[in-house]
């Protein structure tokens, strides 16, 4: 796997080993008690020391929303920007300072409604950003309106008779933009979340992670079907590259294709049929990932983990390549530049 994380330059004094507390800022965390955002924050803070990159080289950039308060709580560089536009600031920063590790924290409203366009373009350009979309299927900060991921019929403050807008699927959108890394995790399963976030961090290129997050105040239980401990094994499909897609407490259910559609097949535990779908996160085509993105409760388990992880040149590498080639080809001579093309100047004496 390609690593984006720069190592300490040779000869530089060894940096002290960092711990989770080094990434905790002095600002009071102001999410509602019980909000899923706490667990995500803790998981990220726990992950960062293991990446080996010092604090000053991490930048967290967010839009507006409850989720977007995130940068204030990280003892790194950070930018709390304007609603929906975080990917634009992050793109300018990463593409002009490729050595930094740039994270984007966004919400379902921030990233998919007002900022949907920027998200698409950051992904298709494959800017090396770690994009974490906290999906609580509601507008939290503005106190409970329908969001682009709210289901049809959802009653919210702005939709007392039920939402009439068909929801958008964040992973399908990311795949349509041909994001090179696409994954999903949930705020209640910290081990899986930590694993997915580490994979995202170590991917070179745009990483898009949908994090299913509970808004305890305005949309409590939105993901209960997925997070509920007792049904965890039945309702989730944990994707593993190269492994058949098996789920269930007794590992006795699997996914296979019937025509172009997936279907669930039950079998005797330990004896999976040969025609089960095998996960391939490196598939050049997005077809399998799309298929997985489109299934979910109540007919299917909810796939979690890494849907797609492929390599493609990043925006910043392509830009740096052009700059380096131009520098090789022509010296940066301002006098010559101001004079313009041969034969365009004249002298007045």
């Amino acid at each position: 796997m390609a690593e984006t994380i720069p190592s300490t330059p040779a000869g530089a004094p060894a940096k002290p080993v960092l711990a989770r507390k080094d990434f905790v800022s002095d600002q009071m965390v102001r999410w509602c008690p019980g909000c899923g955002d706490y667990a995500i924050l803790a998981t990220v803070q726990k992950l960062l020391p293991s990446l080996g990159l010092s604090r000053e080289n991490h930048v967290f950039i967010s839009g507006i929303g409850c989720s977007s308060r995130f940068p204030y709580y990280m003892n790194t560089f950070g930018m709390h920007t304007i609603h929906g536009r975080a990917p634009t600031f992050a793109t300018g920063l990463k593409a002009s300072r490729p050595e930094l590790m740039v994270w984007v924290v966004t919400g379902d409203g921030d990233g998919l409604s007002i900022g949907g366009n920027h998200l698409i373009h950051a992904l298709r350009r494959n800017v090396d950003l770690k994009i974490l979309l906290f999906n609580n299927k509601i507008y939290g900060l503005t106190k409970g309106q329908t969001s682009p991921t709210s289901e049809v019929g959802k009653k919210t403050k702005s939709t007392p008779f039920g939402s009439v807008d068909y929801p958008i699927n964040p992973l399908s959108l990311a795949l349509a933009a041909e994001a090179t890394f696409v994954a999903r995790a949930i705020d209640t399963d910290l081990a899986s979340l930590g694993h997915v976030l580490e994979r995202a961090a170590r991917h070179k290129g745009s990483s898009f992670v949908e994090i299913l997050q509970n808004c305890i105040v305005f949309n409590d239980g939105a993901w209960a079907d997925v997070s509920e401990k007792s049904t965890r094994e039945e309702h989730n499909l944990f994707l593993e590259h190269g492994k058949p897609m098996i789920f269930g407490k007794d590992k006795n259910k699997g996914l296979r294709l019937k025509g172009l559609d997936p279907e669930i097949v039950e079998f005797d535990s330990g004896k999976p049929p040969a025609d089960l779908l095998v996960h391939d996160e490196k598939a050049p085509s997005t077809a399998l990932a799309h298929l997985l993105a489109n299934i979910g409760r109540p007919d299917f388990p909810v796939p979690q983990g890494v849907f797609r992880a492929v390599e493609r040149p990043t925006l910043e590498d392509l830009i740096e390549g052009q700059v380096a080639a131009a520098r090789q080809a022509r010296p940066a001579d301002l006098t010559a530049l101001l004079r313009g093309a041969e034969g365009e100047t004249w002298v007045v004496s």
Partner: peptide, 19 residues
């Protein structure tokens, strides 16, 4: 950088300026 719209254009410039 030919951005996807004018908002992204200025956003990228502010990001670069922070950098």
């Amino acid at each position: 950088f030919q951005a996807e719209d004018e908002i992204a254009a200025i956003g990228s410039a502010i990001g670069a300026s922070f950098g």
